[in-house]
């Protein structure tokens, strides 16, 4: 088991190193144009320049704030509505067609209408992220509620549980694996939407720095921000997996 883990870490490190080495080799070619493919030293330099100027931390905090708020609103709404739709058939027949009809629309398609209605204020950006989180999360919550094994529901009922008690003590815990997966996918969707929303209209944020990098031809800055987004999204997902593992201590399949 330990050997296997070490082997896994090694292989993971190997693939990342390989890509880095190839990048270094390519950027060291005499005919490489550093404006298109900036060497790693320039990318790191851009990181420190932006860090010292304070622009990076400003952008990061603005973006993280939007992510957290949007994620929180979107997933909370998804949890409430998903539970109701998945548990009460009347609500399902009422709301499910609506969700199914709206679901295939990419969240970015709402950008124009959100800008028309709410302008390019902070609210619009958070709203877009909320929509994105809600859409991917709600589907998982509904699936979780629908997949509650019937024998658990029957067992609770014959032990004297009321409908609402079954919901609280059986349906919610049984659906937790699905719900957590929904939250994880929502987090990924939050990052995707964030950058798109900030690319279009934002006075700050990581997406804004990307846009600025393009405008002033600062390829090193663009590259640097891409790496930052990757690292942030990756570490947040890892944190989520740790939470998942803790909550799912009872489950046979904990991934």
């Amino acid at each position: 088991m330990k050997n296997l883990l070490r082997g896994r870490l090694f292989l993971g490190a190997l693939s990342i190193t390989t890509v880095l080495v190839i990048y270094v080799v390519v950027t060291n070619q005499p005919d490489n144009n550093p404006s298109l493919l900036p060497p790693i030293s320039l990318i790191i330099g851009s990181f420190f320049t932006n860090l010292e100027a304070g622009t990076l931390l400003d952008a990061l905090s603005a973006s993280l704030f939007r992510i957290f708020l949007g994620f929180l609103c979107g997933t909370t709404a998804a949890l409430v509505i998903g539970c109701l739709v998945g548990w009460y058939e009347t609500v399902e027949y009422l709301v499910d067609p609506l969700i199914e009809a709206v679901r295939p629309i990419p969240p970015l398609a709402y950008i124009p209408i959100v800008i028309i209605w709410f302008g390019i204020e902070e609210f619009s950006r958070v709203l877009l992220i909320s929509i994105a989180c809600f859409m991917v999360c709600v589907v998982n919550v509904i699936a979780g509620m629908k997949n509650v094994p019937k024998v658990y529901v029957d067992a609770a009922a014959t032990l004297g549980a009321s409908r609402i008690q079954i919901f609280r003590t059986v349906a919610i815990p049984a659906a937790t694996p699905f719900i957590i997966t929904g939250y994880r996918i929502a987090l990924a969707a939050a990052w995707t939407t964030l950058v798109a929303a900030e690319l279009i209209a934002a006075p700050n944020g990581l997406g804004y720095l990307l846009q600025e990098g393009r405008r002033y031809f600062l390829t090193d800055q663009v590259m640097m921000i891409i790496v930052i987004i990757g690292v942030c999204a990756f570490s947040m997902d890892r944190a989520f997996r740790a939470i998942q593992k803790r909550l799912m201590v009872w489950s046979e399949a904990r991934e």
Binding site: V151, Y152, D154, A155, V170, A174, S251, E252
Partner: peptide
């Protein structure tokens, strides 16, 4: 009621 299937709550 005791069921044929496993009805013990795994959580």
């Amino acid at each position: 009621m005791v069921f044929q299937q496993d009805a013990v709550f795994p959580w």
